[in-house]
Design a protein around this nucleic acid. Sequence first.
DNA 1: GTCTATAGCCAGATAGAC
DNA 2: GTCTATCTGGCTATAGAC
Lengths: 204, 204
Amino acid sequence: MKKTKDKNTEEQILNAAKQVFQAKGMDGARMQEIADKAGINKAMLHYYFRNKQLLFEAVFNNAFSLLAPQLNAVLNDDSSIEEKIKNFTANYISFMVDHPYIPNFIIQELNRNPEFIQKMKDNPNFPNIEKFKDQMDEEIKKGIIKPIGAEQLFINIMALNVFPFIAKPLLKAFIHADEAHYRQLLEARKTEVANFIISSIKTT
Amino acid sequence: MKKTKDKNTEEQILNAAKQVFQAKGMDGARMQEIADKAGINKAMLHYYFRNKQLLFEAVFNNAFSLLAPQLNAVLNDDSSIEEKIKNFTANYISFMVDHPYIPNFIIQELNRNPEFIQKMKDNPNFPNIEKFKDQMDEEIKKGIIKPIGAEQLFINIMALNVFPFIAKPLLKAFIHADEAHYRQLLEARKTEVANFIISSIKTT
DNA sequence: GTCTATAGCCAGATAGAC
DNA sequence: GTCTATCTGGCTATAGAC
């Protein structure tokens, strides 16, 4: 008899907090703004999440839990390296259109709060690169792809897919692109990035 | 007779402010911490820079003025595209070792304060991509490199070089690398990244 | 130019009624 | 569970002596 609107309010808070924290960061976010967006008052935030830090951590874990499966898709399915790169590139860019702030948010807060690294590793969905490494070794041995370190390739894949979203304002300025033009470039990258990577690593 | 320790103090402040702002961001930075690092008191910060916002802008412009020439090196010298990629990759990674926070700082604050984009464009060193575009068109026409949009290639070059520094904590966690191992990977990238790009775009 | 002291504000957190 | 009112601390910024 006590949890009538309970779950609903909690979700409204988390949703509002997500927006504010991801736009302003931990330090720039204001509890008042979160409360306003959630349609409640500050006291309720503390009632549900005790303090700002814990609310922030809830948002962080939520965000990471959305991102992690995207990465596992590259690392742990059964298709070939080439297929993985194609699928990941297309899917990740679509994912980013829906959740544009997530990677920047995670990277940013990880740079500021090194203690979050452990929290992230404790997440049950934390990606594991081992299978990807083994698969690379195998395909290199078979002569399907050129010799390249699995770690370097993984970094390259992440960089080419994630960076254009994180550095969007900077890149837009450099190439004198307006919003529409930049969107067009990102859309093209759904296939261009995969081709770029595959051209580089595939044996002919 | 009045500017005895003047210049010196101003530089000490800027240097301290650089450290604190780049580590904590505009919102997380504390004037007290900057004063402590500079070996003076808070009142002096206001005496020299009037307020936090103006001090921050001074640091931002300083940072951008260091980064911009690195980019102009890719865009506006006279060597071939291949040479530019090689030189930029090697030089940029060396630059990053000396100034590890700069790109993240710029990208972060640009995401938060869209009005800084104009300030950045007003910087006399602001990179111009036009020459790079023309050169690409020419080399593609000559059959030296495969057809690829200049903008996409520029994004790729930036992504492969910058992202490993910005996302360092995240990538370190994913690939289970300690500090030494990660440094080794970055060192290897001074040549690996250039090879990766060139393999992808060069006609054989 | 440099300091100490303090004004003034604003944000996170809590008390307590309903 | 939800609200209003308030406490408390910390931060930017300024006043004013030296």
